[in-house]
């Protein structure tokens, strides 16, 4: 991990010295969001942020936390159903963006005879199958290899809490993300959480007070950029209030 963050402006060329040194030299360099390749061997930033590298995966990308979510294959997202056609649901991941499609049969135990009944504006936890540049994004609520939902599917009840895209990534990154407020609360409370990379977290804490407490704690940690100590204080405060 670099000790000084390399701040990038769009158009900056990444010097070879800043690129990751792969543990396995045969692994090709993977470019993540914010970097693009100009043949033959120039790598240029396209988004303002800081350069991040991973030597194990031989990957480089730009870290930033602003702007609208752009769909990417394999992302876990919370989608809102808008309409239904004969065999797909049209869903939206963010307001005012082109709709994504979720086939009726991409649910656990769905057959031609028993399709899921999802009224407009209901929520589903889904995974992005593909996000090609020139066709609509496709979602699924089953794991394609097992046919089981693996936690995906309709979300009933609960409440949505918008968080920054960076926070959503941190929540999905486990320990590396540095968010321990949920574990702290889970010691004394029971609740369900679904994190969408599109910047939304679904929480069901069983009661209005609990759900609100958990959701707002997450938003506070996000907004204030709280570290471990700050998060612990938030956990204490929430548990005291309930």
């Amino acid at each position: 991990m670099a000790s000084t963050t390399q701040v990038l402006l769009p158009g900056d060329t990444i010097p070879t010295s800043a690129l990751p040194t792969p543990n396995n030299p045969k692994k090709p360099l993977t470019l993540g969001p914010g970097l693009r390749h100009i043949p033959p061997s120039t790598i240029v930033a396209s988004i303002a942020g800081s350069l991040s590298t991973d030597n194990k995966k031989n990957a480089a990308w730009v870290e930033y936390n602003s702007g609208r979510y752009t769909p990417s294959a394999n992302d876990l997202v919370i989608a809102t159903i808008l309409t239904s056609t004969a065999d797909t649901f049209n869903c939206t991941l963010t307001p005012h963006t082109p709709t994504t499609s979720l086939p009726h049969l991409s649910f656990e135990n769905a057959t031609r005879k028993t399709r899921p009944q999802l009224p407009p504006h209901s929520l589903v936890y889904a995974r992005i199958v593909s996000a090609p540049r020139d066709s609509p994004v496709e979602l699924t609520c089953v794991d394609p290899s097992t046919g089981k939902s693996e936690g995906l599917g309709p979300l009933k009840g609960g409440m949505l809490f918008p968080v920054s895209l960076g926070m959503a990534r941190r929540l999905l990154a486990g320990k590396k993300g540095g968010v321990m407020v949920l574990e702290g609360l889970a010691e004394k409370m029971g609740f369900e959480v679904a994190v969408g990379r599109n910047g939304v977290v679904w929480v069901d804490g069983g009661s209005v007070k609990n759900t609100l407490g958990i959701g707002r704690a997450l938003q506070e940690v996000d907004r204030e950029g709280l570290g471990e100590r700050g998060q612990r204080k938030v956990v204490e405060r929430v548990l005291r209030g309930l």
Binding site: T5, V7, E63, Y64, S66, G225, L226
Partner: peptide, 14 residues
Amino acid sequence: VRRKVEGEQRWKSG
């Protein structure tokens, strides 16, 4: 932009 990045990553050293 440097200030933007610092603000976004302050949780790392928060």
